[in-house]
Design a protein around this nucleic acid. Structure first.
Lengths: 344, 344
DNA sequence: CAACGTGGTGAGAGCGCTCCCATTCCGGGG
DNA sequence: CCCCGGAATGGGAGCGCTCTCACCACGTTG
């Protein structure tokens, strides 16, 4: 066990004391502590011993005052309502980001921001550079974060294409348009012709893009694409949207829900109304994050490579932080695929 | 909009420059920036104007080097597996903590720790005092965190009673034993006599305490309390445990699952086996975090005041951080209650 | 043998901030 | 008229660290 000896004041030991104990200068002690290039084995060993015996831990504030690095990264979530945390999308993102950061010894600072005035606070906070970079998830149209972050000069990567300034910041996204097309094609292929969709919030690019792909594919197939209800990516939202949709269009024989959570809500409503899935109504979801396998029937869905995207975004951020100078923004669009299960 | 003028180097403006621009000394500028007692209105205004025009943001590293405060708090989660994020318990906790911290202008640092060697790393990190305090959630028996954190002298509060050193750290918990009793009594009251329980992980106090209460109440009622299966607080875990339980004891007419997630798994198995709930088998859950209302049938459950606990824990921590000197540990045990729905 | 690296080292200068303390400038009381 | 106390201020030290630079003791070279 390390001794917990402290200075007279009870304060933590400083590098100065380590140096004294090791019989070297503060500079040499610093070099030794930081991986020690240009340090003799003798000095290295002496410092290591002193560190151990004093229980020395470098003061991060002092260190980052000089290095201008904090070894931490912010995950900015511009929407702290219930949705965020209960959505497996978010959970998986956070976990993946954390794993990558952990590999590099970085800490994760969670920045939840209420809508509206929140980006103001968030930006103010970030301008103080309390973190080395920021990862932005699930942001909405009106926050204008992308441009402002680009102005700040803080390394940052968006998870999901931002609405504006798409060429000024780096981002990673799945090919949402292709995903929307796949859903449409899957339903058409099964002979469905009276199709409807439950989309996500209109102010999120993911929702808008999936809808774009859906409409394009339907038009090409010569099928009407005007049966649309807006959900909010939650199961309850999907349920409400499905009720509305089926009331207006009782003859629907295929539904695309822009998230598996919403698809679960759709399945629930269909079950209540006594419609068989997929016989009477085929259903396609989006995400494939585990939930699609536990519904009844299991869900045919468009795979969303969330973990891969989060990891890629994090690595991009780390590269941006590590690299010198403001590299030009990078865009990565990941492919997606349809996963066939029972519902379509 | 603030001008984004910068120093020659492109660096952020310093207090020095603000002082110069305002025509005052650095000391006065500092006082003015920090709420300004003992500063003349004239100087105050001049500094405010300079801050605005230069777009000055204090450097947090430099500030905390002097003040020894970081204005951030760690939430330590000693179990970063899927379970944590998908559990509504955790989501709600994180949200509540964040809300309270936000009110006080503090940031939330998420500290996920793998089991095993992880507490070592976590403790090392915390010893550098990169945060003003720590909130520990959902910890397990073998991590010995409580004592070690107490040794560190870092302000901290445990959410849920720790296994060891319960008198050396502050903690908040719900009256788990009473909750276990309530579940037992509810089932007995409905005339059930062949009772079984699906508990949580054996190395978590919440699970152990609920089981203790359950057993005590059953013994008092003269009912056998030896039908126990161990789950892991997840739906899948509850499902597996229920299968095992019903295979061993097909005559069971009442089940207590130590979480609603596990109760959902139990309901699923019962439905598959064609047992009616509550007619054939009554079921009681634990948590009541929203999920209990969406099962079929809806779940009678023991209410877990998670949000209130998280808020209380956070406020306790803030008091501990604000107060001078090492106050004696505080323990808070919150009452719980049974919420009657359809399943019992 | 003089000139030249070259790895190892320490002195010292800050990083940007807060805070202690001495100084100044008041008005009011002796 | 002088002295004293309090409010406002500035000078300067120092938080704990990193990093540049000069320096020294060695070989290695021409």
């Amino acid at each position: 066990m390390t001794t917990t000896e402290r200075r007279p004041g009870g304060a933590a030991p400083t590098l100065e004391e380590v140096a004294r104990a090791a019989g070297v200068s503060r500079a040499t002690a610093s070099r030794a502590v930081n991986g020690g290039s240009r340090v003799s084995p003798r000095a290295q060993a002496a410092v290591a011993a002193a560190v151990r015996s004093l229980g020395y831990i470098p003061n991060p504030a002092a260190r980052s005052l000089m290095t201008r690095r904090t070894d931490s990264v912010a995950v900015v979530v511009p929407e702290p309502d219930e949705r965020v945390f209960s959505d497996p999308f978010f959970s998986l993102t956070l976990r993946s980001v954390h794993r990558v950061l952990d590999e590099h010894g970085l800490q994760l600072v969670l920045l939840l921001a209420r809508r509206g005035t929140a980006s103001e606070q968030t930006l103010r906070y970030l301008s103080g550079r309390p973190v080395d970079g920021a990862l932005i998830t699930s942001h909405h149209r009106d926050d204008g974060l992308a441009g402002r972050l680009a102005d700040l000069g803080l390394p940052c990567v968006f998870g999901g294409r931002p609405w504006d300034d798409t060429d000024r910041v780096s981002w990673v996204d799945v090919d949402q348009v292709a995903g929307g097309r796949m859903a449409a094609e899957a339903l058409v292929e099964r002979g469905r012709r009276v199709l409807a969709t439950v989309t996500g919030p209109e102010d999120m690019t993911a929702a808008a893009d999936r809808l774009t792909g859906w409409r394009a594919a339907l038009q090409e197939a010569g099928v009407a694409s005007d049966r649309v209800a807006v959900g909010d990516f939650t199961e309850a939202g999907g349920e409400a949207a499905a009720r509305e949709l089926l009331a207006r269009h009782p003859d629907v024989d295929g539904v695309f829900a822009a998230s598996d959570l919403m698809a679960a809500g759709v399945l629930k409503v269909l079950a209540e109304l006594g419609r068989r899935v997929p016989e009477d109504v085929a259903v396609v979801g989006f995400d494939d994050l585990g939930g699609a396998e536990t519904t009844t029937p299991t869900l045919t869905t468009v795979h969303n490579p969330v973990a891969a995207m989060a990891e890629e975004a994090t690595r991009m951020l780390l590269r941006q932080i590590g690299g010198e100078g403001p590299a030009s923004p990078v865009r990565v669009v990941m492919p997606t695929r349809l996963v066939r299960r029972e519902s379509c």
